[in-house]
Design a binder for these strands. Structure first.
Length: 367
DNA sequence: AACCGTGGCAACCGCCCACTG
DNA sequence: CCAGTGGGCGGTTGCCACGGT
């Protein structure tokens, strides 16, 4: 028996002669006929009873993954994809648990589909398929480039810096999801920066420009360069651009700040959701034109998740879940991620990572 | 036409746990 | 309590189709 292969003894001659590999139509027919007449009963005895030279486990897998009459074949629908993504964000690689929520789909099929399609899709959308958080590698690249940008402004004029900005932005400008992630990221960074300003008015130079970054990168560049050139006194402060700003600047920036919404949870979305939210127009249009600057709801969650998300007690639920699972090495689930971002302190620590990385790199001396 | 690289997917492997005698 | 067994599970392998050169 298959099991005996793992029990430490060599397989018997009978076991060695058992067929492996692809199933023939004749074998399938024998298996189906037998199970339809008698049920599968003991899988171990089944191959002998129905005249198959296979091990029972092989028969069981063939039946459950392929021959079962309620198996749904064919491509996964958008709705099924979304369900898989949502469930995976909560359950991780528990394919059987996920499969139990998708009628007619097997764990094996879902697992294969995840590995060959959905994982790549999420990566392309700028989402880490393990944590379901926005990928940070691209943003880190931008932050890592800030000192170089500064140097370029001071030493070579605007052309080289412009090129650098363009290259970096273009790398981020791949699709709706990464654009949304970018908005998300910047909102949170800005909030973190300003929350650390010790009651003084925010004086982050590119505040209103960063605001535009996701919407019109080209406009940003054309706005950013003259302002930075004019400021002349650009200097590092924990890795942030700062400048001596005028009262008018403060007014603008304060207005900008007030219009920002609280940080959103990490992105967890699909193209279908994006499309349904935005149609063919840019998500930036939506985000920027919305008078409240409110980012759209990003998640079309499973029913259970929806129920929880609509509860007024969600924060407490998430926090208690988060507190129980305090192992720093454990895989972050979506609930934990939400908890992180709903919790103010956790929000700071989450985004601080980016800033600390940026600030850990010495700023070039502008002299 | 032949070769090669790649992606998709069915099938298998090895581990694990629950159950039973 | 223990060994044997069934069966579930996640991870991996290998075949095949397809497209590019």
């Amino acid at each position: 028996m298959c099991r005996l292969y793992m029990m430490g003894r060599s397989p018997s001659s009978e076991e060695k002669s058992l067929k492996k590999g692809p199933w023939t139509p004749e074998e399938d027919q024998k298996l189906v006929d037998y199970i339809q007449k008698h049920g599968h009963g003991s899988w171990r005895a089944l191959p002998r009873l129905c005249g198959l030279n296979r091990c029972g486990k092989s028969c069981r897998l063939r039946w459950t993954n392929y021959l079962r009459p309620d198996i749904k074949r064919g491509r996964f629908s958008q709705e099924e994809e979304q369900i898989i993504i949502n469930l995976h964000s909560v359950l991780g690689n528990k394919w059987s648990a996920i499969a139990s929520r998708l009628a007619g789909r097997t764990d094996n099929e879902i697992k294969n589909y995840w590995n060959t399609h959905l994982k790549k899709k999420l990566l392309q959308m700028g989402i880490d398929p393990v944590t379901h958080r926005p990928r940070t590698d691209h943003l880190n690249e931008i932050l890592a480039n800030l000192p170089l940008l500064h140097t370029l402004f001071n030493s070579t004029g605007t052309t080289a810096a412009n090129n650098l900005v363009n290259v970096t932005l273009n790398r981020l400008h791949s699709d709706h999801a990464s654009q949304l992630a970018k908005i998300q990221l910047l909102h949170n960074i800005l909030q973190l920066l300003t929350s650390n300003s010790n009651n003084s008015p925010p004086n982050i130079l590119p505040m209103n420009l960063l605001h535009q970054l996701p919407h019109h990168p080209d406009q940003l560049i054309s706005d950013l360069l003259p302002l930075m050139n004019n400021s002349q006194q650009l200097h590092g402060n924990n890795g942030c651009f700062t400048t001596s700003s005028t009262p008018q600047d403060h007014q603008i920036l304060s207005a900008d700040l007030q219009s920002f919404e609280a940080p959103q949870p990490p992105l967890k979305l699909s193209q279908s959701i994006i499309d349904s939210q935005f149609g063919s127009s840019s998500p930036y249009d939506h985000a920027i034109n919305n008078p409240n600057h409110q980012l759209p709801a990003l998640v079309s969650a499973s029913p259970v998740v929806n129920q929880m998300e609509t509860s007024n007690n969600i924060k407490n639920i998430i926090k208690s879940n988060h507190d129980v699972n305090s192992d720093p090495c454990s895989t972050s689930t979506t609930f934990e991620a939400w908890g992180d971002l709903i919790d103010d302190e956790a929000t700071d620590s989450y985004w601080k990572g980016f800033l600390e990385q940026a600030s850990s790199q010495p700023w070039p001396n502008s002299d």
